[in-house]
Simulated scan of single mutants.
Amino acid sequence: MENTRHVYMIPKKKNKNVTTPTIHENESKISDDIATNVDKTFANDNCGDTNRCDLNEMNDISVDKKLKRKIQVREANQKYRDNQKKHYDKLKLQNKQLTTEVEQLKYELHKKTDSMQLHFANVYNVWYCEHNNLIQSIHKALITNYKDSDIIPILNNVMDHFKHLFYVNNIAAKRDALNIIYGVWMKPTERCIMWVGGFRPSDILKLINTHVYLTDLQSKNINELQSSTIHQERKISNTIANVEQKLAVRLVSDGFKDKGDGLALTNYIAHISQSMGNFHAMETYLHQADQLRLNILSNLQQMLTTKQFAESLLCINAYFKRIEAINCA
């Protein structure tokens, strides 16, 4: 007999406290859930709109800052260009004014130089006319056999007149030594014969030794004086030639090649200015030459008798006349 198992289902006990919801309660609960979901959806929608508004405001602020920055940069650039233009116009005006002033100064300098040359030429012509009058007085005194005591004052006047010429030379040389030394105021023939703005002392000694009757001792003394005078003339001439040579060397020097740094021109101008500064020392050389001329005349006055010295002055004036005649030829 087969064993069979029987399963008995134990029925669950019903909970008396649990109540079955009614249809009305279910509908109310569904309505509440729907309202809650609607509120949440509405809240989410409002939050999204707020975020989008904030983002748009931030974008607008960023755009405004960029635009404002561009405007500021544009205004700054325009202000810079305006300032540059004003500065350029100011420099252009200053350059024009300086150019005008330089041209005016050049004109005044040229006018002043011409006036100075003309003034000195007039002064020398007046001096030469007075010198001729004094020489005529000496000539008259020798012809009429004036006493030595009567001739000496005339000779002293001639010496004072030469001193006045050398004084005028010194004053003029302070303004323009080159004008006096190179005889710009002279005629071309005079410039060829004259020496450092005047007569050559050694030529005067040769002239007197040839045309004035002298004793052997006087002739010897004059020859010695002539030798020492020639030595001093050469010294002055060599000094002037050295200054001229230095300037010429500076002008053709290869040591001022431009390397693109602008220093070549600056150094060149400095060296030329230094060389030109030596030209300003020409005043000293002119003074030395005039002093040598005056010393020769003073030595002749001491070495010769009154009438011999008077004849010497006549020979010197005849020498000037020969130069004047050559100029007129």
Rank of each mutant, 00 (worst) to 15 (best):
A172N: 08
K174M: 12
L178P: 00
Y182I: 07
Y182V: 08
W185K: 08
K187V: 03
E190Q: 14
E190Y: 06
E190C: 08
C192E: 14
W195Q: 10
W195R: 14
G197K: 02
P201K: 04
S202K: 09
D203N: 12
L205V: 05
L205C: 05
K206Y: 05
L207V: 01
T210K: 15
H211E: 14
H211Y: 12
V212K: 06
Y213R: 09
T215Q: 05
D216P: 00
L217M: 05
L217C: 01
L217Y: 08
Q218A: 06
Q218F: 09
K220L: 11
K220R: 07
N221W: 04
N221C: 13
N223V: 02
S227E: 14
S227M: 10
S227H: 11
E233Q: 14
N238M: 08
A241R: 13
Q245P: 00
Q245M: 10
A248E: 13
V249P: 00
V249E: 14
V252S: 11
V252D: 07
V252M: 05
G255I: 06
F256W: 05
K257E: 11
D258R: 06
D261Q: 05
G262L: 02
L263W: 04
L263D: 10
N267P: 00
I269L: 13
A270R: 15
A270M: 12
H271F: 03
H271K: 12
S273T: 15
M276R: 08
F279V: 10
F279S: 04
T284W: 01
Y285N: 11
Y285H: 15
L286T: 03
H287K: 15
D290H: 02
L292T: 04
L297S: 07
S298Q: 13
Q302A: 09
M303A: 07
L304M: 05
L304T: 03
T306L: 08
